[in-house]
Amino acid sequence: MIAFVDMHREKFGVEAICRILSATECGFITSRGYRAAKNRPASARSVRDEMLAEEVQRIHQANYSVYGVRKMWHAMRHAGWNVGRDQIARLMKIAGLQGVRRGRKPVTTCSADGDDQRPDLVERRFVADRPQQLWVADITYVRMLSGFCYVAFVTDVFSRRIVGWAVAPTLHTESLPLLALEHALQSTGVSRNESGLIHHSDRGSQYVSLAYSDALLAAGVTASVGTVGDSYDNALAETVNGLYKAELIYSKRIWESVSEVELATMGWVHWWNTSRLHEALGYRTPANVGATYTHTTTTAPATV
Rank of each mutant, 00 (worst) to 15 (best):
T239R: 13
E15Y: 06
N241T: 06
S259H: 09
V261G: 04
L171R: 12
V142Y: 07
T109I: 13
N241K: 04
N82S: 09
T298G: 07
G220T: 12
A291E: 15
S175W: 06
F153N: 00
S201Q: 01
H60R: 01
T108M: 11
P169G: 03
R143P: 10
A75W: 00
G80L: 02
A215Q: 12
D49C: 01
E238H: 12
V208P: 04
Q186E: 12
R276P: 12
A211R: 15
T296W: 14
Q57C: 11
S111Q: 14
A89R: 10
H74D: 00
P286L: 10
S146I: 09
I94K: 14
E182I: 04
K252H: 11
Y207I: 01
P119E: 10
V127I: 13
E247K: 04
L197N: 02
S259M: 07
V127P: 05
L181S: 06
D230C: 12
I17H: 03
Q133A: 10
I29F: 05
R9Q: 14
T296Y: 15
W165V: 05
S43M: 04
M51G: 11
G68D: 01
V47C: 10
S191E: 08
N273H: 08
L134Y: 04
A211M: 10
I2S: 09
H200A: 05
V240T: 13
Y150W: 08
M266Q: 13
Q206H: 09
K11E: 11
G204Q: 01
H183K: 12
L217H: 15
A42S: 11
E55V: 07
V136T: 03
L185I: 15
V47D: 09
V221C: 05
A53C: 10
H295R: 13
N234M: 08
R77C: 00
D129R: 15
K245N: 10
M1Y: 04
M92T: 02
L121C: 10
R35T: 03
A168G: 03
T298P: 12
E55Q: 14
N63F: 09
V151K: 00
G84Q: 02
E25W: 06
G282I: 02
A218K: 15
H78A: 11
S205R: 13
H270F: 15
D86M: 02
A184P: 02
R192M: 09
H60V: 00
E262C: 07
M1N: 05
A79G: 05
S205L: 13
L263E: 14
N63T: 04
W81L: 03
E55T: 09
V83M: 00
D230G: 08
L210P: 06
G13Q: 08
Y283H: 10
E262Y: 07
A42H: 07
V14M: 07
R19S: 06
A23W: 11
D156N: 09
T297Q: 13
E182W: 08
R19P: 01
L216S: 05
S224G: 03
L216N: 02
S46D: 09
T298Q: 15
F28N: 11
D49W: 00
E182K: 15
G68E: 00
